[in-house]
Design a protein around this nucleic acid. Structure first.
Length: 429
RNA sequence: GGAGGGGUGGCAGAGUGGUUGAAUGCACCGGUCUUGAAAACCGGCGUGGGUUAACGCCCACCCAGGGUUCAAAUCCCUGCCCCUCCGCCA
């Protein structure tokens, strides 16, 4: 959610900045809505004030010994008018407020000035490349062939159990998948100073509104049947960031910022991506992810994004997987994000870099929706925190990258050095 | 699933229809006192919205949503959450 005051003060500037994301902000529409809201608000407030005065007067008269009916009769003219208009005016004011709220909830975050102009992912700005894509002296197989030949990946049986876009893993590949989770968690806890959290995998609407998945992106989510309106989480970002919803953090607890790491499964409907990545593990309805979440003082968020992205990069580096880092352009950046780096890992079978992590600074956009605040000692007032998160990493895609980058001519897969302590073999064959 | 008890400001905790946005204590901020600190004393101290050049003034908010009433933290209904006991259970 954008700051209403900011939008009000300079709607055209807001519209200009949102144009970078190709979001069309209707300035005149906003202004007339806001004006209508204000009028309705003032009218109903004035009437409420009259009612309050009248009631007070009756109270005084009754206290002074006058019978209630007589007291009411003495202020009757006012009461009749209030009776007549109040419910109409208050519901009008409420409706106007709701219309404005809906509009505000649908406006994406203002992109950071660093965010490059652009229409889609082709316009993202490459920041760096790390590692050399290995050259193979045999024909590389994609992860599906590698995994199936080793008997460790099975998409057909997953389709039988559930449907498309699910997978079953077996043996050393299943173990490596689990090893990746442990390795990532241990690294972030031990080397990057994050606190591990365990959270629910189902959340309510308030949480999804807080991080921005609702109201706009309901079709991306799996909603549960039943009395409760629960949704499967599309990312740990939702429950973990919402830990601080409706909370005021004391300044002393904010010195280092709040840093959480969390492993969860993620569930995504992938509506609207029917033709894409249908083969293999790249795009699944269910996948595991290790997520980093930070809540920091506003002044710290830009540095925090660089640090957090570095923490995700460290995983790729320790796994010795070549990757590149790109800064998302205005057309590709997510709804709630102010600035996003994607990390793309090299997939030799696809002969291209593919997204494996997305690290974003949301500024106060989510915090304002969530009422996540800290008490600024300079003003002694609660102020919004800044929120950040990033995948570090998407586990399924990391496994894909290892199967492809570490494959050998005989179909076996070398276990990356840092995973060996978690495995019972050096080579999967 | 059955039976009861609760949800009030950062925290604890009063308040059962009338000038209560809310007593009191703790915490916090400022001041007096002190060489300094503590103690003591004095004062301040919720959030959101509107209006104002500003002081200020106005409205809303005592879990949420409805209702009764001239008037609701207080009464009624529904929902959510928490606690205690019983049953069931990984």
């Amino acid at each position: 959610m954008l700051d209403l005051k900011l939008v009000r003060q300079n709607p055209q500037a807001v519209a200009d900045q949102l144009a970078k994301r190709h979001f069309d902000f209707d300035v005149d529409g906003f202004l007339s809505l806001d004006e209508a809201r204000k009028q309705a608000d003032i009218e109903s407030q004035n009437l409420l004030a009259e009612r309050k005065q009248a009631s007070k007067k009756i109270g005084e008269l009754v206290k002074g010994g006058m019978p209630i009916d007589e007291a009411k009769a003495s202020v009757n003219a006012t009461l009749a008018k209030i009776e007549e208009q109040l419910s109409e005016l208050t519901s009008k004011a409420k409706a106007a407020q709701e219309t404005l709220d809906d509009l505000m909830a649908g406006i994406p975050n203002i992109p950071h000035p660093d965010v490059p102009e652009g229409k889609d992912e082709a316009d993202n700005l490459e920041i760096l490349r790390w590692g050399e894509p290995k050259s193979f002296d045999f024909e590389v197989k994609d992860h599906v062939d590698v995994g199936e030949n080793l008997g460790g990946l099975d998409f057909d049986v997953a389709a039988k159990l559930t449907g498309s876009r699910f997978s079953v893993m077996r043996g050393e590949i299943a173990r490596m998948h689990r090893a990746l989770i442990q390795f990532m968690l241990n690294t972030h806890i031990g080397q990057h100073d994050y606190t591990e959290v365990y959270v629910p995998y189902m959340v309510n609407k308030d949480s999804l509104r807080g991080t921005g998945q609702l109201p706009k992106f309901e079709e991306d989510l799996f909603k549960l049947e039943g009395d409760q309106e629960y949704y499967l989480i599309p990312t740990a970002e939702v429950p973990v960031t919402n830990l601080l919803r409706d909370t005021i953090v004391e300044a002393a607890d904010m010195e280092k910022g709040l840093r959480f790491v969390c492993h969860t499964p993620c569930f995504r409907s992938e509506a609207g991506s029917y033709g894409r990545d249908t083969r293999g593990m790249i795009r699944q309805h269910q996948f595991e992810k290790v997520e980093l979440v930070q809540l920091v003082k506003p002044a710290d968020s830009e540095a925090a994004l660089e640090a957090l992205t570095g923490h995700a990069e460290a995983i790729l580096q320790q796994l010795e997987l070549p990757y590149r880092k790109v800064l998302l352009c205005g057309g590709d950046i997510g709804f709630s994000s102010r600035k996003t780096y994607d990390l793309e890992v090299w997939l030799p079978a696809q002969n291209q870099y593919r997204e494996i992590s997305s690290c974003s600074n949301f500024g106060d956009f989510q915090a304002r929706r969530m009422l996540a605040r800290w008490r600024n000692p300079e003003t002694n007032k609660p102020e919004y925190l800044h929120t950040l998160n990033g995948s570090a990493l998407a586990v399924g895609r990391t496994l894909v990258a290892i199967l492809e980058n570490y494959q050998q001519a005989d179909g076996s897969v070398v276990v990356p050095e840092v995973l060996k302590p978690y495995m019972q073999c050096d080579v999967i064959k």
